[in-house]
C-alpha cells in the first residue's frame, strides 16, 4: 500500500462523523474605489523605496540618472525605455547578471494599499533571476496597472505564471524585530511611476 493511501486513509478516518462546516462568508471588502496613486507612493516610500514620477518618454533618461553602470533588461522591454548600453537578457549566465549594477523591468500589477509590485515574468519583466541578483531594481509602472487592494491584484494575476510580489527592497526583521533594509535581494528599489 502506498503512503498516499495510508495518509488519505488516516485523514478519512479522522474526518468520520464530521459535520459539514459553515459556508465561507466573504463579507470583507471586495469592491474598491479607483487606486490612489498617492497612497501607493506613500507606502513605497515607507518601505524606503525611491519613487520617481516620470513621463513615458523619459524612462531611459531617468534610468541613466539612477545608475551609470550596466543595466540588465528583459528581452521584451520596450526599446524606448532602455538606457544606452543596456544588457538584454538572452540567457545570461548568473554571474553576469550578478555583476550588473541594476536591472530594469516593467511590472504586472501594483497594490496601492500595501505598496506592492507584482512581476509575472512576462517578456517585459523577464526571468525571475534577473530581478534578484543585481543590487538595484528599477521598475516601470503604468498608472493603469495600479489597483487599490490585494483582492484586485489576485484577480488580475495568472497563477500559471511564476509570480514575485515585491514590497520594498529586501529587508529583515530578524535582529530584535526591527526592520533593516538590504539583505539578499536588491538593496535598492526604484519605482518609475509613469504620468497618466
Amino acid at each position: 500500500m502506498s503512503s498516499k493511501d495510508v495518509i488519505l486513509g488516516r485523514v478519512r478516518a479522522a474526518l468520520r462523523d464530521t459535520p459539514t462546516p459553515e459556508p465561507v462568508v466573504r463579507d470583507y471588502r471586495r469592491s474598491f474605489p479607483a487606486a490612489d496613486l498617492e497612497l501607493l507612493v506613500d507606502r513605497l516610500v515607507d518601505y524606503r523605496a525611491t519613487v520617481h514620477r516620470v513621463a513615458a518618454d523619459a524612462v531611459a533618461a531617468s534610468v541613466s540618472g539612477i545608475t551609470g553602470g550596466t543595466v540588465v533588461v528583459p528581452p521584451g522591454l520596450p526599446l524606448g525605455w532602455r538606457p544606452p548600453g543596456a544588457l538584454p537578457d538572452d540567457g545570461l549566465a548568473p554571474d553576469r547578471i550578478a555583476a550588473a549594477d541594476a536591472v530594469l523591468t516593467a511590472a504586472a500589477v501594483a497594490v496601492a494599499e500595501t505598496g506592492t509590485i507584482v512581476l509575472d515574468a512576462s517578456p517585459d519583466q523577464g526571468r525571475r533571476i534577473i530581478t534578484l541578483l543585481p543590487d538595484v531594481h528599477i521598475v516601470v509602472l503604468r498608472p493603469d496597472q495600479v489597483v487599490a487592494s490585494v483582492p484586485e491584484a489576485v484577480a488580475r494575476l495568472d497563477p500559471a505564471r511564476p509570480l514575485t510580489w515585491i514590497s520594498g527592497p529586501s529587508a529583515t526583521s530578524d535582529i530584535e524585530l526591527n526592520r533593516v533594509e538590504g539583505v539578499h535581494g536588491p538593496r535598492h528599489l526604484h519605482v518609475l511611476l509613469l504620468e497618466r
Binding site: 507606502r43 518601505y47 497594490v111 494599499e113 500595501t114 505598496g115 506592492t116 525571475r128 490585494v150 497563477p159 500559471a160 505564471r161 511564476p162 509570480l163 514575485t164 510580489w165 515585491i166 514590497s167 520594498g168 527592497p169 529586501s170 529587508a171 526583521s173 524585530l177 526592520r179 535581494g185
Partner: peptide
C-alpha cells in the same frame, strides 16, 4: 506576523 502591510517578497510558482 511581521507587522507589515506586506512582507518584502512572496514567490508563487506552479
Amino acid at each position: 506576523s511581521t507587522g507589515e502591510r506586506m512582507n518584502p517578497y512572496t514567490t508563487m510558482w506552479t
